[in-house]
Design a protein around this nucleic acid. Sequence first.
DNA 1: TTGTACGCGTTATCAT
DNA 2: ATGATAACGCGTACAA
Lengths: 329, 329
Amino acid sequence: MNIYDIAREAGVSITTVSRVINNKQNISAKTKEKVETILKKHNYTPNAFARGLMSSSIKSIGVVTVDIRDPHYANTAFTIEQDFSKLGYNVILCNTGGKTDESINYLRMLMEKKVDGIILIGSVFNDQQVRKYVSKHVRNLPIVLANGYLAVDNSYSVLVDDFYGISCCVEHLYAKKHTKIIYIKDAETYSGERKQAGFIAAMKEHGLPVDDTSIIKVPRGLEGGYMAVAKLVDDGKDFSAIIFGEDITAVGGIKKLKELGRRVPEDVAVTGFNNSTFAKCCDPELTSVDNKVETVASLSAKMLHDLIETKNVSSTIMIRPDLIIRKST
Amino acid sequence: MNIYDIAREAGVSITTVSRVINNKQNISAKTKEKVETILKKHNYTPNAFARGLMSSSIKSIGVVTVDIRDPHYANTAFTIEQDFSKLGYNVILCNTGGKTDESINYLRMLMEKKVDGIILIGSVFNDQQVRKYVSKHVRNLPIVLANGYLAVDNSYSVLVDDFYGISCCVEHLYAKKHTKIIYIKDAETYSGERKQAGFIAAMKEHGLPVDDTSIIKVPRGLEGGYMAVAKLVDDGKDFSAIIFGEDITAVGGIKKLKELGRRVPEDVAVTGFNNSTFAKCCDPELTSVDNKVETVASLSAKMLHDLIETKNVSSTIMIRPDLIIRKST
DNA sequence: TTGTACGCGTTATCAT
DNA sequence: ATGATAACGCGTACAA
């Protein structure tokens, strides 16, 4: 059932039908009503491909994440999807698994499918090859990096002040008389660098000791945190507080601390990052930096939509995180 | 840059270019090579809309979930996306928030965008209105319900034997000499009903007491479990074990138990469902039913793909879950 | 107010 | 092996 069939049945031209469908001017109320009846009767919907061929838009955007199973990314993607859904757009979901090749494949695919815009979630995508591809091939398609910084000309980002977030943790622990503080880092991304920089700066500001053994790099996830604590203890490192770069890593760390008979927060204070559900599940509940996922996601969505509508848009938005204090410190 | 431009530059017809692009027969190696050079030079990609107009397919599927922030749904959606991505398909993500109207809107949208198939995640979608819409309007579009049962003619489902899963919990607790067992139910879905039925059947089989006070209905999430335990204690109910219908609910329940000074598992044994990350984060680690999310997701994806390729497909696949025994029982 | 005719970029059919 | 042309379904400039 296409526009011709409708036109024939209504005894009008396809132009008239098209006008009715798209609510255009210059239609007599009578004709309009007649056509609408037929439209409804057959439950007609225009062919999206033919439409796209004319308008070169199909009202959809691409959302690229490393892994939607990560609650942080899931939250962001959820908010973006809901916001864009209200605007009549669909969201195409892509999970790259953190592989650069995959990222570029997905970008290519999204461009072929002629999405109206793209949101990358996480500073992982501020990767050299991705940047190169974007600046070379994604020229006239709006692209926004949510929760991270994209070092490309004419690019747009919404990010959280990670530097500030971690330094808040140091402030808080210092106020509680901690001086031997460890930082557990779990990603070599832009965001990861900012967090580490915030740690170092805040420690130095209070004249607290920082050296190679105060910062430990571990794999992502529960196991990473577990391993970090194991290593600290194996190395005989002396510490009274640990700042983790992610909640889930902190959960793993606390698990190991408990196994070793160290009490949290009496023997060791612990902070996390993301203020996720894990922070509330954790026993004791985790002091964590709230990095305002929903806010970042919504602002990213709004930014992309403004770009699609070619409004004037600022290139970078930075959000201040909050420290949520719970039982673990 | 379209197929005409390429043809002109290569000094051949568009037919020839099309043949090269689609790897068709009857092309001389020489011509093929010549065209491929030009193709590569301009980084040409065919217009997906024009293609769709001919083939009425754009190689994409719709994945409909209640809320991608739920780890269980995120896992399923992730696996489906990865599997279909390997087959050259894109995934359009939809979050209905559990609202029937939204579900139907999304289904309509997906049909308009001419996806090649649809996967619904969770037995929530076995809703009367959704069923009605599907059987009326989604007639010639393959649709699969992952992790639940869809009571519609000509429909396809992959599901876990929830009945068996919960009855395993009862068996396990009974073997540990528990007789006063509570079941906490958190969803009125098909899956929820099966779980409850499994509980009742297994209890009766061992001659254990079951009545209205043995089964408590609570809202989803951490708070639900917390409230459930609060209610049990308020009511002065005597119990030695609790079976929760979801891990996260169990986590909430354990939290409240601890606050009340009841030890897990010494005073109260606890089981969860889903074998999620929460089960491992929990202290003590949670005995939980592994409902094989990835398996269900992969089988659903395979089923849908087979349907798209119009292969013969069985209408229902049922998976047996496993009980993973940890410290909470 | 309404209709005719063309273009969008591709694939399929039928000639050559 | 290669090419000309129709068809897919819609929007729109222009004509009536």
